[in-house]
Design a protein around this nucleic acid. Structure first.
Lengths: 253, 253
DNA sequence: GTAATAGTGTCTCTAAGACATTATACT
DNA sequence: AGTATAATGTCTTAGAGACACTATTAC
């Protein structure tokens, strides 16, 4: 047993290897509801079902050229399947899925990322992207067994992680336009948390972020069905004052 | 480009594959300080350096037999290298590391887990485990470049994730004895957060957990250098009343 | 004008932080 | 007796939640 472990670390080559893929949970907000980008599968397995976009990690020859980093693969797949650039989205690894049998063809370990897309960029995806069959589906409307593989699990874990981080990171600002109104930001919180947010209380929370320098007023107004709303923007990280999201810093004097 | 992606999903076989490993950040508390289990490497690369325990994922033949799940591999490695059983520890996947070149021999993608070990079990590790060279090292004393591969990164990410979850999960209860005193639990918080916790305020927080049924009084006392402390235990999850950690539920009436 | 919603203000309650104080053990 | 620390209590402040209310726009 000891020798087995030691041999494993000494010489990795003789072991059978799984395929390693990168899968993407690409999310955006459409009309106040979370939507996920899905692709209709054209071949078995799961032919005709919807699946998360993704692809195989490039590993080069594995020795001299060890290939691309996981994050690079995620960026590449995102670009290939949506036309989006990495600077346009928040792309973050959140979990890895490797249950035997999750792909009936062979053992596949999938490193999963979520990609948060601003609403104004989401419209371009079908036109610009490579994947002609890509489509946005409302997360709430997906019933069990519409997704291929274990992609329903992956989606669920992505949403759970986002819920955890929503209040303590700058995540929400990647789901609104670069210049956004407070009601728009509130819609993100309502959608991700799955319950409406009180307008007054939410506004107060955002106002604190402005006082703390996390957000700043932006020119223009957002026209709505009634009274227009003022705009704000997320203040980019600077070396002295690193970017913070909700609650990520002390609010001392 | 489109066809490339489609071919990838249709036929995974022709792609070169990385090795997939499971690495473990095994942590415990010794004298109020976090310690991580490390193994002295006996062969290149990084001969003589300390490394996280871990091993290669078993994938079977990859077709008929697709091998073991990632979590199973983590449990197996933990047992092989420490003798610990999965029921004794909190084992949780937290991130995956795949930078090209992180292992000079070949492309290796490592799925990383942290394993939290109760102090009373930690002492058994050297005697019981397979890895005779395993040793506990104080996390605070590790200086850069003592660890092999990118294991310093892995350790850092593990600790960061634990800090995030400490207040919102039951994680802390896996680093104290099954029956623990409030000061012992406070030591866990102090060690993970890296700053001392106020005794009075911390006690008040724990008392709320007792009122809420998360913890319950346990028989006996913990003897200390001065006044003995009362003991408590974490109430196991039940179907009706799922287990909660710090703050993981509403504290309503 | 009316409807809708942006934006403000108020009241209550919970919890965190910074302590001071008391109680009970070990030496 | 003296020391250490478990355990309790007090005061202040920040923030969440539940509202009522006002202001400004589109129609």
């Amino acid at each position: 047993m000891t020798s087995e472990v030691q041999r494993a670390r000494q010489s990795l080559a003789p072991y059978a290897r799984p395929a390693v893929a990168v899968d993407l949970v690409v999310l955006t907000l459409v009309d106040g509801a979370l939507h996920v980008l899905l692709i209709r599968r054209g071949e078995p397995p799961f032919e005709g079902k919807l699946a998360l976009p993704g692809g195989i990690l490039r590993v080069g020859d594995g020795e001299e050229d060890q290939g691309e980093d996981l994050d690079v693969a995620a960026v590449r797949e995102l670009h290939e399947e949506t036309g989006l650039e990495s600077r346009d989205v928040l792309l973050e690894q959140f979990a890895t899925f490797g249950r035997p049998g999750r792909d009936p063809r062979m053992r596949v370990v999938s490193v999963a990322y979520y990609a948060l897309v601003r609403p104004e960029l989401a419209r371009r995806v079908r036109a610009g992207g490579d994947a002609a069959e890509a489509r946005w589906e409302a997360v709430g409307r997906l019933d069990a067994s519409t997704l291929a593989f274990d992609h329903e699990d992956i989606l669920r874990v992505a949403l759970a992680r986002m819920r955890e981080k929503l209040d303590t990171s700058a995540l929400a600002f990647s789901l609104v336009p670069e210049r956004f109104s407070i009601p728009e930001l509130r819609a993100v919180f309502s959608a991700v948390k799955g319950e409406p947010q009180d307008p007054g209380n939410f506004r107060r929370k955002v106002k604190r972020l402005i006082e703390d320098g996390v957000l700043e007023a932006a020119p223009g107004v957002r026209r709505t069905a009634s009274k227009p709303a003022a705009l704000y923007r997320f203040r980019a990280a600077s070396p002295e004052t690193p970017a913070r999201g909700f609650k990520s810093g002390t609010r001392s004097a």
